[in-house]
Amino acid sequence: MAATTPATAPGTRQQNRGPGARGYLAAAAAGAAVLALSVVSLFVGASDITPARLVGDPDARELFLLSRVPRTLALLLAGAAMSVAGLIMQMLTQNRFVEPSTAGTVQSASLGILLVTILFPGAPLPVKMTAACVAALLGTLLFLGVLRRVALKSSLIVPLVGIMLGAVISAVTTFFALRYGLLQTLGTWESGDFSGIMRGRYEQLWLVGIMALTAYLVADRLTVAGLGRDIAVSIGLNYRAVVALGVGIVAMVSGVVVSVVGTLPFLGLIVPNLVSMVVGDHVRKGVPWVCLLGGGILVLCDIVSRVIRQPFEIPVGTVLGVVGAAVFLVMLLRRRNVG
C-alpha cells in the first residue's frame, strides 16, 4: 500500500518504542534479584562456606567449585530451559495450560530412561540422556497426533488429553519398574533433586541452555505459530518446520533435564503465564523474562529445600510442586481470560 496511501502523521512513529525506561529498570531489578538469589544459593548448605573462607582456605575453595557453583549453575540452566519449553508448548498448542509435564513429554522421557536402565543396566548418562530425549520426542509427537484427532479443542480439553496421556505412560513406566525391581531407582528421576549435582555431573545442562538460546533466535517463528496455522501459512511460514523445531527443543530440554536432575513440575506452566500477563506473548520479548524468572524461582525453591530441614534436604521438586500449585491456583482465580 506504499504509494497509494499517504503516510500517517509523522508523530506516530515515536510510538514504536522499545522496552522504554521502565522496562529497562524492571529488567535490571529482576536481573539483580536473580543474581542475589544465586549468591545466597552459593553460600547455603551443610558445610559452612563463607566468602571469607574462600579467600583463605583452599579446601573450601575446592568444595565451592566442585559442588556449589555447579549446583547453582544447574539450577539456573534447568529452571530457565524448562520454563522456555513450557512457553514453546503453549505457543505450539495455543493453550496456556500445556507444558512438558501436561503433554506426556516428561513421562515419556522417564519411560525412555527406565527402558535403557533395564536393557543396558550399566549405560552411562549420555546414553540414558539420548534415550530420554528420543522418548520425549516420540511422546510429544503422540500428544500432538492425538490432539489433531480431537474435535473439541477447548482450553481445558487439551491439557486433560495431555495429562491422561502422561498418566498412561507413567503407568507403563511404573509397571516395568515394579517388574524389574527398579521402583526406587525410578524415584531418583521422578522427583527433581539437585543434591547430587557436582562438577562432572551437570555439564550436560549447558545443552538445554543452548536450546533456550535457540528458542530466542527463532522467537518470531514461534510467536507466529502461536497465532495459529492459518495465519502462519498465510504469511508464508513453513508451519510444519516450526512445529518440528519447537517440539525438538522441548524434547531435548525435557530429556536432558529429567535424566540429569529429574522432573521439575509446574515451572513450564506458571513462568510463561506470569510473563504473558505482563509482557504478552511476543516470544522474543518474553524469552529473556521467562529465563530470568524460571531460573530465579528454581534457585529460590532450592534454597528453601536446603534450609527448611537443615541439615537434611528435601527434593526441590517437592517444594516446586507446593509453590507451583499455589501460584497456579491464584493465577486461575485471578485471570478470567485463560484462552
Binding site: 495455543q94 510467536t223 507466529v224 497465532l227 495459529g228 495465519i231 506473548d281 511476543h282 481470560n337
Partner: peptide, 16 residues
Amino acid sequence: NQFTTRLTVRDLVRFG
C-alpha cells in the same frame, strides 16, 4: 480462532 494471543495490535500488524 478461540485462542487470542497476547500481542499488542502493533506487534500483530508487524507480522504482516
